[in-house]
Design a protein around this nucleic acid. Structure first.
Lengths: 184, 184
DNA sequence: CGCGGTTGTCAACGGCTGTTGACCCGGTCC
DNA sequence: GGACCGGGTCAACAGCCGTTGACAACCGCG
């Protein structure tokens, strides 16, 4: 069976859960170590610093490099990545919510920015190809992040806590429009 | 001519500029008082607390209550509110960017959430009327906030630092699609 | 046995946070 | 003159922050 996780893993799990839900600078190392049940000093030992621990949790985020090229597949994959939680352990937070929570941060915002540009926007534009590929990719991301924002952060009555099918239809509607930008 | 502003006004101006750009918990009262050139203790005297000062800056944000009812006017007004800075003193930050920066905050997020629901989403849905009014309003906000996010926070290469006309066309494209949600 | 290396525990550090109370200074009013 | 009062200055407070260094317990190895 699964042996008890190492201290390093306990720290990493607790850090991922807290950082991704509340944001880097809204979580203290003492919050993490208390949640993991280990001593404060062990963050320094295993990850060098709080920043090192955060970056270790970032390393697990997938990119869109392996996306299919067909436009319908892009749409379906985008909707799917929106619906699926990025961390199976936690609740229903997806990748977009996690990136949103940390992009505002004064210390980590730059790193998140690079991740989205190079891990999401650039691969997506390459897969799309054709006219306005970069703009379409950017608009698609705007739609996805905007919907994540309205549902999870602003929690608008019209969107939050609705059945999955309805959310999917809304995402697909907005995302499809984004992919048609520039057509005559 | 304009007399020198009162200490209260100096505090309010500096607080608005810093809070709206960096977010509530990323700004200290000492940052504000240093920028305003006054003593730290005066925040307590004039506004009771840091939170009181922040809420005083929130009171100036306009709602969409006075919006026109025609759909084209809604679209035009949305694009215009996106282009126009909310505070003429500072640079190009609009209302959406300011709300974005503070929605994540663990202490002030709730207040911002209520402002957006009651000051933007609800009035907008009422003006729109008809089928799916609330969903359309929410999708429109998702498009606007998503675009603000991509431009100002994630700063995607394809969107940031582009001419105003191009941005307007992209906003209008996505926003128009949002307003058509639910049509057969 | 003794040794070295890893792992965990504890207390403390300097720095920053929001907030407070004592104090002073320039007025105005009795 | 003397009392009062709004406005401003200063030092200090308690608390949290990230990080560190000293120390103890344990391990396998020679």
């Amino acid at each position: 069976m699964d042996q008890t996780p190492s201290t390093r893993d306990k720290l990493l799990t607790a850090a991922r859960e807290l950082f991704w839900a509340r944001g880097y600078s809204n979580v203290s190392v003492r919050d993490i170590t208390k949640s993991a049940g280990v001593d404060v000093a062990l963050v320094s030992r295993y990850f060098g610093s709080k920043q090192g621990l955060f970056e270790a949790t970032l390393a697990e985020i997938p990119t869109w490099e392996a996306l299919e090229v067909d436009r319908d597949c892009v749409l379906a994959a985008a909707v799917a990545s929106f619906a699926h939680p990025c961390d199976p352990g936690t609740d229903e937070t997806n990748v977009f919510t996690m990136l949103l929570t940390n992009i505002i941060d004064p210390e980590m915002g730059g790193k998140i920015r690079c991740m989205v540009q190079r891990g999401l926007a650039d691969p997506l534009a390459r897969k799309l190809g054709g006219n306005h590929a970069e703009e379409r990719a950017a608009l698609l991301l705007a739609a996805l992040f905007g919907m994540a924002l309205m549902r999870k952060n602003f929690r608008l009555d019209a969107l939050a806590n609705k059945p999955q099918a309805e959310t999917d239809a809304q995402i697909r509607h907005l995302a499809a429009a984004a992919l048609e930008y520039g057509d005559v």
